[in-house]
C-alpha cells in the first residue's frame, strides 16, 4: 500500500481555496436557518453555546493560538461586504481569510508595528441568541448567534454588531469550526478601523 500523499500545509500554501470550496461555501451559507432542522436538545445547544462563548473569550483575551486551534486546518473566516453575502469570487469582502491569512492577521498584530492595533484594542464580546441547525451531513452543524463587540481604542469605545454563522464539524468528542461568516449589520457602510478579529 502506498503511503497517503503528503497534504500541503495550509499554514504555508493555499491549495484548498478553490472553486469547489467557494461553491460549497455559498451553498452551505444559503437557506440553512430552517426551523425544521433546529436542534432542540438543550444539552446539545448548550454545548454549542459554550463553544461560541469560549471563542469570544479567547478573542477578548488575545489568545490567538488557542483561538485558531478551535478551527479546522482548512478553515474559512469570511466577513461579507453585502448584507446578503454574495459570491466571494466576484465580490470584495470586508475580510476573507484562509488559514494562512488568519495567521498573517495574527502575525501582523504581533509585529509591534500594526499602528491600528498599537496598543491593542480592548474588547468585550456579548454572544446571544445561539441556535443550532442540523445539516445534510451527520457530522456537521450550522450555528447562528448574535454578537455585540464593544471595542475600546484611543479614547473611545465603539460598537461592532451583527450575527455570525459558524459551520462546525465533529472532532473526536467535540467540534471544530470549518467556516465562520460574520455579518456586520453595517457591512456595506464605511467602518471605523476594522482591524480586530471579529
Amino acid at each position: 500500500m502506498n503511503a497517503p500523499a503528503q497534504k500541503p500545509d495550509p499554514s504555508r500554501t493555499s491549495h484548498y481555496v478553490n472553486d469547489a470550496l467557494y461553491r460549497a461555501l455559498i451553498e452551505n451559507f444559503s437557506d440553512w436557518q430552517d426551523d425544521a432542522r433546529a436542534v432542540t436538545d438543550l444539552a446539545v445547544r448548550d454545548e454549542f453555546r459554550r463553544l461560541l462563548e469560549r471563542e469570544a473569550r479567547l478573542l477578548d483575551q488575545l489568545r490567538y493560538d488557542d483561538w485558531l486551534a478551535m478551527y479546522t486546518p482548512e478553515c474559512v473566516y469570511w466577513v461579507p461586504s453585502t448584507p446578503q453575502a454574495g459570491d466571494p469570487r466576484r465580490e470584495i469582502s470586508v475580510m476573507f481569510d484562509d488559514r494562512r491569512r488568519l495567521e498573517d492577521r495574527i502575525y501582523r498584530m504581533r509585529t509591534g508595528f500594526a499602528w491600528s492595533q498599537a496598543p491593542a484594542s480592548r474588547t468585550v464580546r456579548l454572544i446571544t441568541n445561539v441556535e443550532a441547525f442540523a445539516t445534510a451531513r451527520d457530522d456537521t452543524r450550522m450555528l447562528r448567534s448574535n454578537f455585540l463587540v464593544s471595542e475600546f481604542w484611543g479614547d473611545e469605545t465603539r460598537v461592532l454588531t451583527g450575527w455570525a454563522g459558524h459551520r462546525v464539524t465533529r472532532d473526536g468528542a467535540g467540534w471544530k469550526i470549518e467556516a465562520k461568516q460574520v455579518n456586520l449589520i453595517d457591512c456595506d457602510q464605511s467602518i471605523r478601523n476594522p482591524s480586530i478579529i471579529l
Partner: peptide
C-alpha cells in the same frame, strides 16, 4: 478579489 483585500486589511488600517 483576494489580492485586493490584502492591502485594505493589512495596510490601510494603519494609515487611517
Amino acid at each position: 478579489m483576494r489580492t485586493q483585500e490584502g492591502f485594505p486589511n493589512f495596510g490601510e488600517v494603519d494609515d487611517i
